[in-house]
Amino acid sequence: MAAPAKIFGALAEFRTTKELFHACEKVRDAGYKTWDAHSPFPVHGLEKAMGLSPSRVPWIVLVAGLTGASGGMLLQWWVSTTAYPLVISGKPLFSWQAFVPITFELGVLFGALGAVLGMLHLNKLPRYYNALFRSRRFDRVTDNRFFISIESRDPKFDAAQTMKFLESLGAMHVELVED
């Protein structure tokens, strides 16, 4: 009954960050596109070894933060001059100095939400299932092992050849992961 399983990709296991780093450089130079590195903690400089472009999270935060701050000022202006004008201590209705604290706080709130939701959106998370979780060895990616995965969607992917290539990079273990 079981149809021949579709291959998700090849998974190579490394022991140290140094090995991972140099392996990433070689995978990048070999011209693979749909691949990824996995580590229990962020390895700084790995984005260069992988040839990744900088994160777009800051732009999301900038837009969200400015939206929050300007929305906060607008709300206070509208409430104080139009919706419910209150004269307090003879001050002008639009006494903007008193509105600075809430404007700032709302800017921070929207910026922070933008940072978290933007990060999750760019990472396509939350997502409960990923084919890599099928691999028992991959459980240690959150402990002390480092992995490179090359997906079968990659035009250069060829099961036998890619596995051989990964082995040549000094991987301690290479396997194919079913989808």
Binding site: A37, L52, S55, A112, V116, N130, V141
Partner: peptide
């Protein structure tokens, strides 16, 4: 569904830095 992906870490670290900055 966190899987320690380097592409994820890149966005994650940037978001964390910005959160600290905010």
């Amino acid at each position: 569904g966190w899987r320690g992906s380097a592409r994820h870490w890149l966005n994650y670290e940037k978001a964390y830095l910005i959160l600290a900055g905010l």
